[in-house]
Design a protein around this nucleic acid. Structure first.
Lengths: 217, 217
DNA sequence: GTTCTTTATTATGTCTGACATATCGTCCGG
DNA sequence: CCGGACGATATGTCAGACATAATAAAGAAC
């Protein structure tokens, strides 16, 4: 990368500000600084992929979407059904409440796609929190990024999100009655629908051998 | 938190250094700064739990281990079998190589626990990378933290890690023959053994209703 | 000519002191 | 009791200087 003084000239900022910005990127694993050699970009596998900022930046890029969206779908398909099962086993009154609230608002806004997006996010996040596992909460950033991306993708193509309400209801009810297998199956069904929707609306979602991609640093 | 100048006095550092340190913590989600109000700690769910530094810091604390280790085991039980299945489906020569190399060294060092730890880490990381899914690679930090912790826990209690070699071999061979279900099952068996070992060697692993823990910020 | 040692350069890392800016608490007047 | 002006305070930004270490180049020994 350009040196700190050069970056300072480029963006009209003092070296202090440049250094703090680089420190931020360094903390997220994007770059690494060594004396004399300067600051270099780190390989993709060093990035904190679940960091909310990194997810947002990669989304805003727009062009990088196809494999990105596909990977997102696959990881959600792994994590969220398991999280639903864990939540069914170990939820409490305190942690079940937010799930029920979010679902109630989803029912109220089932006719309006933009108003539906926020309770949808809260629903999935509340389930992750209800697992009681600290690491599951870390996926909230991922699901929120995914939902944000999918809303942008689907917003122009289809109507109201009404049909997904009963699928969400099935997840909630299975969790409420502490039916782990049922919650897992219901969440799988819900994500399958999402995946089909996204795949239908996006051309070239890099399914199949989508791995062989650019892989630029 | 104390103000930046106070921290500077406390640690004999200039405000520049203090600010860069705070920026690092801020990038990882531990703290947030607002003008005039000062810098405050953020709730646990805002932390980047998969960040390598945060995992290392939480491990070095020592006392926080019981629920931490339990959560680690549960997340691995969710992610790694699925990763093994994905790797079985979409590995290439390039991505299979590191798995085989790591396993070969595990066989050579099966008698020596400390020498065994490193290829063990590489084995699990290589599988995560072989999925071809960028987000799966992000779990490498987690599995490495987990293995580091488990080695510390088990090092004083038991002998050589020999018995786990055939379990690893089963995972490798299932991946090599592109048997997704087999790889998933083999990885589940491997992690089950690890979990049983850890639970046997640690008192009070916060199994069951381990959720109701301190939850301090 | 090759190799080892020394020196110089150059980037990051640290320090200092100052000013800018926004926000919270307080005070005052309506 | 309420709303606006004002001052205090902590973060945010700036400028210039020096420290430090790692690389590259120059030089000495063989």
């Amino acid at each position: 990368m350009p040196g700190e003084i050069a970056l300072g000239r480029r963006y009209r900022a003092s070296r202090t500000v440049v250094r703090e910005a680089l420190k931020l990127l360094s903390a997220k694993g994007l770059i690494a600084s060594r004396k004399r050699s300067g600051t270099r970009a780190r390989p993709r596998e060093a990035w904190n992929m679940l960091d909310a900022d990194i997810l947002a930046w990669r989304l805003r890029d727009g062009r990088a979407e196809p494999k990105f969206v596909s990977d997102l779908l696959h990881v959600r398909a792994v994590v969220e059904p398991a999280a639903a099962a864990m939540a069914a086993r170990s939820h409490t009154k305190k942690s079940l409440g937010p799930i029920e609230e979010a679902f109630a608002e989803m029912e109220r806004t089932a006719h309006n796609r933009v108003a539906f997006a926020d309770p949808d996010r809260r629903f999935h996040k509340a389930i992750l929190m209800a697992t009681g596992n600290d690491f599951m909460g870390a996926f909230a950033a991922l699901t929120e990024a995914a939902l944000g991306a999918f809303v942008r993708i689907a917003s122009r193509h289809r109507g109201a999100p009404g049909p997904s309400v009963p699928l969400h209801r099935a997840v909630l009810e299975a969790i409420r009655r502490r039916d782990a297998e049922g919650a897992q199956a219901a969440m799988t069904a819900l994500l399958d629908r999402t995946a089909r929707n996204v795949e239908r609306n996006v051309k070239g979602t890099a399914k199949g051998k989508g791995r062989a991609r650019a892989r630029r640093t």
